[in-house]
């Protein structure tokens, strides 16, 4: 499946999210009708790339998209370090080097807002552990636009700032412990 028919599943997180996300990807059943957009804050010049750090994920194709990559199901697109990742109405991903948002580039808010602006037909998002409030407002916009939203239970998050910031703005469809992220994803996809 390609372009706007694909279900976009955004996973945003920061400090305390990386290892859970790696485990999640290794457990997540392959779905050719969905693409996962991974937006994790990271060091600017990490010694190894996020792709290497994620390891070989069964079936899913994991990559850092180039600018103007057409969205395809069965892919995990990892926001590259030092670029904002955005979704364009025409069905492709674009990159930008605009100012960081909440000191973050990539910024989860920027990605989520772009999905809303693009009026993407089917999408959902999960916000995980993190030490700043990036993503909270974008999740709120997502929620307002009628998309499925899930926020990690702050009590379960290694660092609660990010999920708490989101929960202060709205009540998501689901609050979940990280161990249930696969189920939450499948629930979002099935709606």
């Amino acid at each position: 499946m390609k372009g706007r028919e694909v279900f976009l599943w955004v996973v945003g997180g920061s400090a305390g999210s990386f290892t859970p996300v790696r485990n999640y990807l290794h457990q997540m059943p392959y779905r050719q009708e969905m693409a996962i957009l991974l937006c994790l804050h990271r060091m600017r010049n990490p010694r190894i790339s996020m792709i290497e750090a994620l390891g070989r994920v069964p079936e899913w194709r994991v990559l850092e998209p180039d600018d103007k990559t057409f969205v395809e199901g069965g892919f995990v697109y990892v926001a590259p370090a030092d670029y904002h990742l955005l979704v364009e109405k025409e069905g492709y991903l674009s990159l930008a080097v605009d100012e960081p948002v909440h000191f973050s580039r990539p910024s989860i808010d920027v990605l989520l807002q772009s999905v809303v602006q693009a009026q993407w037909p089917r999408a959902g998002a999960a916000l995980l552990s993190g030490a700043n409030r990036d993503g909270a407002y974008g999740m709120y916009l997502f929620h307002k636009a009628g998309y499925f939203t899930a926020v990690q239970d702050p009590a379960d998050a290694e660092i609660a700032t990010m999920p708490e910031a989101a929960l202060a703005l709205f009540e998501p469809k689901v609050r979940f412990p990280i161990s249930q992220l696969v189920e939450v994803t499948l629930q979002a996809l099935s709606l």
């Binding site: 955005l86 364009e88 930008a96 605009d98 100012e99 772009s114 693009a118």
Partner: peptide, 12 residues
């Protein structure tokens, strides 16, 4: 100009 980022910057 790619609309997603243009709209963002105009907003800013």
């Amino acid at each position: 100009y790619a609309p997603a980022s243009l709209k963002r910057r105009l907003g800013t």
